[in-house]
Design a protein around this nucleic acid. Sequence first.
RNA 1: GGAGAAUUGGCAGAGUGGUCGAAUGUACCGGUCUUGAAAACCGGCGUACCGCAAGGUACCGGGGGUUCGAAUCCCUCAUUCUCCGCCA
Length: 422
Amino acid sequence: MLEIQRIRTNKDEIIEGLQKRHFDASPIIDEILTLDEQWRASKASLESIAAEMNQISKQIGILFKEGKQEEANAAKAKTGELKSSEADLKTKVDELDEKITSLMYQLPNVPNSLVKQGRNEEDNEIIEEHGKEPVYGFTPHPHWELADKYDLIDFELGVKITGAGFPVYKGKGAKLQRALINFFLEEAESAGYTEHQVPHVVNEASGYGTGQLPDKEGQMYYSESDDLYLIPTGEVPLTNIYRNVLLPDENFSIKLTGHTPCFRREAGSYGAHVRGLNRLHQFDKVEIVRIEHPNNSEKALTEMVNHVKGLLEKLGLHYRILRLCGGDTGFAAAMTYDFEVYSAAQKKWLEVSSVSRFDTFQTTRLKLRFKNANKKSQLCHTLNGSALALPRIVACILENYQTEKGIEIPEALHKYTGFTEI
RNA sequence: GGAGAAUUGGCAGAGUGGUCGAAUGUACCGGUCUUGAAAACCGGCGUACCGCAAGGUACCGGGGGUUCGAAUCCCUCAUUCUCCGCCA
């Protein structure tokens, strides 16, 4: 959520920034400002009436204490009118509040100055490309064929137990995945991130805190009888650890990591592009999250990008980095770098990580602040990224490391898998 | 799941209808004293919103209600503790 203060003072900058998303903010912002003005006026009168009521009540108290019953009762009689206009104003203020908030929820984050204007993924900028496309002396198989051939993943079983999009990993397939999780967690740990094991189900307040609600309500699995949501990413519980927190000073740099399953309804996406591991309802991910001083978030983003690069290099995968254009950048993010790995077998790029800075967009909702040098509360910045999402990495390893006889395991994983080939 | 008790400022803890944003202790910050420290003493010490300011308003687990007036009474939800039940 943007800060109302910022909307009041930097309206034009926000409208201009949001044009990079092809989002026309001016009608919403104008409405917010009109309502905000009414809100302030109503609030001022409400408070002056409240002040008057408080005065009278205090007087009545004194009169009763002095035994002046009649005067007290007379004073009581006077309050009726004040009370009803207080109630009316209160209703009005609450209504305005609600309207303003719901409009504020509709405004996405303002893109960073580096972000280019654009509508969709076609306008994303390719920033870097590393590694080489693997060369095969044969026609490479897509991972779902390999998974079947070597008995690594059973999609049918998942359908039987749950439904489409919930695969069962078996034998070396399961072990490969577990090895990757350990590899990612240990890499994160050596980069200074503290490992956390967090709930996989969150309450409504947490969903609002990181911005999944109300924007992506339909994307999350929801248990109505408990009013709880299955997490769509570890970002939600990890970041919400710091909801309603006031850090005591400005010397902080909080780095969290955790492995969680992620649950996504992915309503409406079917067909060939969701084949195999490409898009699932449940998948595992190691997430990295940072809470930073605003002056440090640019540096933090670079560090996170370098961390993810390091992982992909160690796995020896051919990858590229995109800076998303305005239209493709997520609702809450100010800037996002996507990492894609090339699948030669499928002849397409698969997104395996997304690293974003949110500036104060999440922390306004989270109420996550620190005391700055002037002893004033100031909003922190948050960032997060996948490091890494498992299934597509598994898919790419299977595809890119396939030989005619089997699948080689990247060397970095040997100590975690306990085997060197499948 | 059932019964009971509780939830107050960083922590501890008083307050059961009126001048309570809240005693007191402790922690913390500043000062006096001291060669330095401790002790003692003095002062300060929550958050948010509106306002140029003076100031005002709100907040005693969350939400709602009663009342001229609520930390205090009522309803409801959450959490914690104790006992019972169930259980990996």
